[in-house]
Amino acid sequence: MTARLLKGACIVALLPLMAACATGARSGGGPRLPVVTDPAPIVSGTMRPYQIRGRWYRPAEQPDYDETGTASWYGDQFNGRPTATGERFDMYALTAAHKTLPLPGLVEVTNLSNGRSLVVRINDRGPFVDGRIIDLSRGAADQLGLLQQGVGEVRVRYLGPAPRLGSAQPVRYAAAVAPAPAAPRPEPAPEVGAYWIQAGSFSDRRAARQVAGRLGERATVDVTGQGDTPRYRVLVGPWSDPDAAEHARQAVVARGYADALLISGR
């Protein structure tokens, strides 16, 4: 998006992957949100005032940013182009553009029409349309239920700096606040030939179920071990493509499960 509008934005080298998050409770209860313990530095060039179509925008630190307005989304036209942070725009990743918040950062976006919430990585500038406060990637819009109508009323809350990026495996997904889990279902073992993310291994079945519930519908509990020492693994998946599985693993890490592993059902 900003490859056309902000050609002079500072492009920085991607840093080694050191994303490690803990979880913190949302005020007033509800889903738990990520707290970044190893934040990426703000891209200094993106904090300079800039002008688009005769209008000036002045980026600034806004720790208390909490705004309601219209969200839009962008996709194919900008897919693969550099964003304002120097990251490549992936329309299926959970990212977004904002006019003035620090980059890269994390925001919680809530679709006010259906209550769905998602934590996305802000790595671009926009949208430069009056009345719109955030421009979501196609993937983020899809998960929030905004893909078909194109725009919708949302609440955007700034959470703070985003985690660092890795040069070989960029963090393509931010943390998604999953909806409440569906009714209990069977807990299958990993499928042969599939890739799974192991979010954790627990000695207590209830603890494993709680973690699976926080990670959403694709999370299940697999029992391993025998006798008096069973282990309960929380598995997320499956994915048939190892790259997609790795991107999903990084999303689980961003949710606060820093020891998440990519495993194969082979």
Rank of each mutant, 00 (worst) to 15 (best):
A60Q: 15
S72L: 04
D76I: 08
P63Q: 08
I52P: 00
D64F: 00
Y65C: 05
I42E: 00
G54Y: 13
P49Q: 12
Q77L: 13
M47R: 01
P41Q: 01
R53M: 10
V36C: 05
P49R: 11
G54V: 15
W73I: 04
I52N: 05
P41W: 02
Y50W: 14
V43Q: 02
V43S: 00
Y74M: 02
W56R: 06
V43M: 04
D64M: 01
R58Y: 13
T70L: 05
P49W: 10
Y74L: 02
V36S: 04
P41G: 01
P63K: 08
R58P: 03
A60F: 13
D38R: 11
Y65M: 07
E67W: 05
R53P: 04
Q62P: 00
V35L: 13
D76C: 06
A71F: 06
S72P: 03
G54C: 15
I52H: 04
T37G: 15
Y65S: 05
A60Y: 14
I42Y: 04
E61D: 13
T37W: 08
I52E: 07
P59K: 07
G54P: 12
P41L: 04
T70H: 01
V36G: 02
D66I: 11
S44Y: 06
G45N: 11
A40L: 00
I52A: 05
P49A: 13
W73C: 03
P49C: 11
T46S: 10
T37P: 00
P59A: 11
Y74T: 03
A60M: 15
A40T: 00
D66R: 14
E61M: 10
Y57E: 03
W56K: 05
W56D: 01
A60E: 15
E67F: 07
D66P: 10
W56G: 02
E61V: 08
D66N: 15
R58N: 12
V35M: 09
I42M: 02
G69S: 11
M47D: 01
V43Y: 01
R53T: 11
M47V: 02
E67V: 15
D64K: 03
D66W: 11
R58Q: 10
D76K: 14
P49D: 13
M47G: 03
T37H: 14
G45T: 12
D38F: 06
I52W: 04
D76H: 13
R48L: 14
M47I: 05
Y74I: 01
T68I: 12
V43C: 04
E61Q: 13
T37V: 11
Q51H: 08
G69Y: 09
Y74V: 03
G54R: 14
P49Y: 11
I52G: 01
R55N: 08
Y65G: 01
P39Q: 09
W56A: 05
P41E: 03
P63I: 07
R48G: 06
A71G: 03
I52C: 06
P39A: 07
P63M: 08
Q51T: 15
Q62E: 12
P39C: 09
S44K: 14
D64E: 07
P63N: 10
S72I: 00
S72D: 07
D38T: 13
T68A: 07
Q62S: 12
P39H: 07
P59T: 11
Y57F: 12
T37F: 08
P63E: 07
Q77W: 10
S72Q: 00
R55G: 04
T70Q: 02
R53G: 07
P49G: 10
T70I: 09
P41S: 00
